[in-house]
Amino acid sequence: MDSTTSELPTRTPLRATASNGLKIVVVGGFGVGKTTMVRAVSEIRPLSTEEVMTQAGATVDVNNGAYAKTTTTVAFDFGRISLDEQMVLYLFGAPGQERFWFLWDSLFAGTLGAVVLVDTRRLADSWYAIDRLEHHGTPFIVARNNFEPPVHDLSAVRGALDLSPDVPLIDCDARNRDSAKQVLITLVNHLYALSTARENTP
C-alpha cells in the first residue's frame, strides 16, 4: 500500500441525492496498473481482491497437525467518483486476458466505455481485450501506462496494435491523479464525439 491509498476511507457515504450509477471499465493485463489507476482517481479505497492473491488458508485442527491451503484469486476491483449531486461514476479494473472472457458480458453491460491500459513491455496482453471491444462495438480508448520513460513513440504503438485511426491513444502515468483523470476525460470526449456524430447522422 502506498501512502496515498491509506488516506482514502474505504467507505464514505454517497450524497443522499445520488441516483445514477455510471460505469467505466479499465481493462488490461496483470500488472499493467489498473488498480493503481483506479486508486489514483477514486474517492474510496478501491475494493479489490488482487491484494489477497495468496492466502494461507484455514488452519484446520485435525488429529495430528494442521492443514493449510493456498488460494490465489483474481477478480476485478473498483473505485468510485461522485460527479455531481446525482451521478456517481464507478471505475472497474478488469483483467483483460482471454481466460477471463466470461467476466465480460456482465461487467460490460451498460458501461459507458472502456479504457485499455497497455504496457509496451507486454503489449500482447491487451490484444484479446481490444479484439473483444472491437467485436462488441464498445467505445474505447487506449492508454499507455508509463512508469518509466517509454522507448517507443505512440505511433509505433498504434501501428503495433493496429488501432483504427479514430480510437484515441494517449500516454499516462497511472499513479498520477491528474493523468488518470485526463484518461477518463479523453474517453468521455471520445464518447461525446461518437455521440454527436451519431446525432448528426440521420
Binding site: N20, L22, L83, P139, I185, V188, L191, Y192
Partner: peptide
C-alpha cells in the same frame, strides 16, 4: 435507483448527458 445513461435508443448516451459527465470529471 437504477442507472440511467441518457442513451436514447442507441447504445451511446446523449451529448447532453456526456457533457455533464465531463463537467463532473473536470471538477
Amino acid at each position: 435507483r437504477h442507472p440511467v445513461s441518457g442513451a436514447a435508443g442507441s447504445s451511446l448516451p446523449s451529448g447532453d448527458f456526456l457533457r455533464k459527465v465531463l463537467v463532473g470529471l473536470h471538477n
